[in-house]
Amino acid sequence: MHKHEGMTLIVKTVTRISVWMILLYGTYIVFHGHLSPGGGFAGGVIIALALLNVLLAYGRNFVTEWLSIKFLHGLESLAASFFVIIGILGMVYVGYFLGNYLSKGELFNLLSAGTILPLNIVIGIKVGTSLFIVIWFLSELKIDKGE
């Protein structure tokens, strides 16, 4: 495909193996936000960095084929809308914006702490996609030519 784009074979190979682990780590941070340090924003940044690694190692054209930027953009808007919708559901069920209406569960279980987990997930998606899209649009510019 685009063999001569991006960095050397070594970097590409390492990236190919490591990117999934970074994504997994990011997801872990998002899902354990209510149990351990981390949360939606921190995990989202890690997810964005995993995608950024691919962009750096393989170059822009590969990423265009691998990912659909339009899909990422839709996902970003959807996640942000979901945050507000979860908040509004709080008004419906308990009478306060962002109020908790899910079961609080047992302490230290994954499915606990009510609406914090779903909120963390939508923030993780929002931050991950939007940070990557910002870098994507910046990578369009050719700074050395001033365009």
Binding site: E76, S77, I88
Partner: peptide, 16 residues
């Protein structure tokens, strides 16, 4: 809260 919710949700739905 609607003074914040309405425009915020509108902004995201527009982009969606």
């Amino acid at each position: 809260p609607y003074y914040i919710i309405i425009p915020l949700l509108t902004a995201f739905i527009i982009s969606l």
